[in-house]
Amino acid sequence: MNQTASKKAEEFGFHAGDIVQEWLWDDDVDDSIREKIENLTGEELVDEDYDSAVDGVILWWRDGDDEDELSDTIVDAYAVLGEDGPLWVLTPKPGRPGAASSIVVQNAAKTAGMNAAMPLTVSDDWNGIHLRAFGKGR
């Protein structure tokens, strides 16, 4: 049973009714991922200006963006995330414009006090890396 998160949005760890915050949206994001999350949760994604607690986060990251900025953004996103809510960094897959090395994401996550899982294919053009605070869960 090796389905990608794009085919089974539940693999992101979001649930019906969850408020999911989206960081660093740009016109290159995969709208099918956004749509599947919204269909699963029944809620529209909220942007980084949303000022209440959220149940999950997706953060779009591309090569050429500053690694220190990624660490800071992870810290900011985690600050509004409810306890144990999923936090995902989405990056273009290798060979795609803006493809970011998973090492960059892992280093930024470590700086932010998080563990980074192995990349998961979430669409034809994007990978997702699930982050967890040190000492939290699997």
Rank of each mutant, 00 (worst) to 15 (best):
N2A: 13
N2P: 03
N2M: 11
Q3L: 15
T4S: 14
T4H: 12
A5M: 08
A5E: 03
K8C: 11
K8A: 13
A9S: 15
A9T: 03
F12T: 03
G13I: 09
G13E: 05
F14A: 10
F14I: 15
F14S: 04
H15M: 14
A16Y: 12
G17A: 15
D18W: 10
D18F: 14
I19G: 03
I19A: 06
I19R: 12
I19F: 07
I19Q: 10
E22P: 00
E22R: 13
E22H: 07
W23M: 01
L24R: 15
W25T: 09
D27S: 14
D28M: 08
D28T: 15
D28E: 14
V29K: 09
D30N: 14
D31C: 01
D31H: 12
S32C: 07
S32G: 09
I33H: 05
R34W: 08
R34Q: 14
R34F: 07
E35Q: 12
E35M: 10
E35I: 07
E35D: 14
K36Q: 15
I37M: 13
I37E: 03
N39V: 08
N39P: 00
N39F: 09
G42P: 08
G42E: 09
L45Y: 06
L45P: 05
V46G: 07
V46R: 08
D47P: 00
E48K: 10
Y50A: 00
Y50V: 02
D51Y: 06
S52V: 06
A53T: 08
D55M: 02
L59C: 08
W61S: 02
R62P: 00
R62L: 01
D63S: 15
G64V: 04
D65F: 11
E67V: 10
E67L: 07
E69T: 12
L70C: 05
L70P: 07
T73N: 11
I74F: 02
I74N: 00
Y78A: 15
Y78H: 11
A79K: 10
G82T: 09
E83L: 09
E83M: 13
E83Y: 11
D84F: 09
D84W: 05
G85C: 09
W88T: 04
V89A: 08
L90P: 03
L90Y: 04
T91D: 04
P92C: 10
K93T: 14
K93R: 15
P94F: 07
G95N: 15
G98T: 09
A99M: 05
A99L: 00
A100Q: 02
I103Y: 06
I103G: 01
V104N: 03
V104P: 00
V105A: 04
V105D: 01
V105F: 01
Q106H: 12
A109W: 05
A109R: 06
K110I: 04
K110P: 02
T111V: 13
A112M: 08
M114C: 13
N115K: 13
A116G: 06
A117W: 08
P119M: 03
L120C: 08
T121N: 06
T121R: 15
V122Q: 00
V122N: 00
S123D: 02
D124Y: 06
W126H: 03
H130Q: 13
H130W: 10
H130C: 11
H130G: 04
R132G: 01
A133V: 09
A133I: 07
K136G: 02
G137C: 04
G137E: 12
